[in-house]
Amino acid sequence: MHLAYPAVVAALLFSIGVYGVLARRNAILVLMSVELMLNAVNLNLVAFDVWFRDRLHGGQVLTLFTIVIAAAEIGLGLAIVLLVYRNRRTIDVDRLRTLAEGTGDPERTDEPGPADEPGDAGDLEEAAR
């Protein structure tokens, strides 16, 4: 087997992953694109391990570590996406500019105003949450 074939396939996979990270707005699609990029790296690691005929199979061991890290990354990433969706009702990456809860309006402060007096309807809404 020639080394150029897996290297070209890995380069194509990595390019598709980079495009997905840069062009997509959905957080789940961004995570899938990161996985494509990691799989391209795994393909290169295994291909070079076979090409160099390493007796310790260092490329395959590093591939297993990469797969474990990718599984942990996906688990944490999906947990974060679910929490963001519960709070914001969207997983659009462009709309998630700030980490503060609320409308994301920088002009808005959390100081109580005249409409936020105790006993208002706003207190009923907060109690219902």
Results as ranks from 00 to 15, higher is better:
residue 24 R to N: 09
residue 31 L to G: 02
residue 104 G to M: 13
residue 122 G to S: 08
residue 34 V to Q: 11
residue 112 P to H: 08
residue 122 G to L: 14
residue 52 F to Q: 09
residue 86 R to F: 09
residue 72 A to K: 12
residue 7 A to P: 04
residue 15 S to V: 01
residue 94 D to G: 02
residue 79 A to D: 11
residue 97 R to I: 03
residue 78 L to N: 09
residue 14 F to W: 13
residue 18 V to R: 07
residue 3 L to P: 03
residue 7 A to S: 11
residue 99 L to G: 06
residue 6 P to W: 10
residue 15 S to Y: 13
residue 121 A to P: 08
residue 31 L to K: 03
residue 112 P to T: 00
residue 111 E to R: 15
residue 64 L to H: 13
residue 99 L to T: 01
residue 116 D to V: 01
residue 59 G to P: 06
residue 125 E to Y: 14
residue 16 I to E: 08
residue 36 L to N: 05
residue 50 V to Y: 11
residue 125 E to M: 10
residue 41 V to C: 04
residue 2 H to Q: 06
residue 47 A to V: 02
residue 24 R to F: 12
residue 42 N to C: 11
residue 80 I to S: 11
residue 26 N to I: 00
residue 78 L to E: 09
residue 10 A to C: 09
residue 1 M to Y: 14
residue 48 F to P: 06
residue 119 G to K: 06
residue 125 E to T: 00
residue 58 G to T: 03
residue 30 V to F: 07
residue 2 H to K: 08
residue 34 V to N: 07
residue 4 A to P: 05
residue 33 S to Q: 05
residue 16 I to V: 01
residue 129 R to W: 12
residue 127 A to Q: 08
residue 125 E to G: 05
residue 19 Y to H: 15
residue 40 A to L: 05
residue 27 A to I: 03
residue 15 S to F: 15
residue 117 E to G: 02
residue 105 D to C: 02
residue 82 L to M: 15
residue 68 V to G: 09
residue 56 L to T: 01
residue 78 L to V: 01
residue 21 V to D: 08
residue 12 L to Y: 07
residue 10 A to H: 12
residue 65 F to V: 00
residue 92 D to T: 00
residue 129 R to A: 08
residue 47 A to M: 14
residue 107 E to F: 14
residue 63 T to R: 11
residue 13 L to H: 04
residue 16 I to C: 07
residue 94 D to K: 04
residue 66 T to A: 05
residue 86 R to L: 10
residue 64 L to C: 10
residue 65 F to A: 01
residue 65 F to I: 00
residue 24 R to Y: 12
residue 71 A to S: 13
residue 107 E to Y: 13
residue 21 V to N: 10
residue 127 A to R: 12
residue 3 L to C: 02
residue 83 L to V: 02
residue 71 A to Y: 10
residue 103 T to A: 03
residue 51 W to A: 05
residue 86 R to T: 02
residue 97 R to G: 09
residue 57 H to D: 11
residue 92 D to R: 02
residue 2 H to F: 07
residue 6 P to R: 03
residue 87 N to M: 06
residue 83 L to M: 14
residue 97 R to E: 08
residue 77 G to W: 13
residue 40 A to Q: 06
residue 99 L to C: 03
residue 120 D to G: 03
residue 52 F to D: 06
residue 111 E to L: 13
residue 86 R to V: 02
residue 109 T to K: 15
residue 32 M to D: 10
residue 98 T to K: 05
residue 44 N to H: 14
residue 56 L to Q: 07
residue 50 V to W: 09
residue 101 E to S: 08
residue 107 E to Q: 12
residue 82 L to A: 13
residue 11 A to G: 07
residue 72 A to Q: 13
residue 123 D to F: 11
residue 67 I to L: 14
residue 71 A to L: 15
residue 70 A to Y: 13
residue 87 N to R: 12
residue 63 T to G: 04
residue 108 R to W: 14
residue 117 E to S: 02
residue 48 F to K: 06
residue 100 A to H: 10
residue 74 I to L: 12
residue 44 N to T: 04
residue 60 Q to Y: 14
residue 55 R to A: 12
residue 96 L to P: 03
residue 84 V to I: 01
residue 19 Y to C: 14
residue 27 A to T: 02
residue 21 V to P: 07
residue 51 W to I: 01
residue 75 G to W: 15
residue 15 S to N: 09
residue 108 R to V: 01
residue 77 G to D: 09
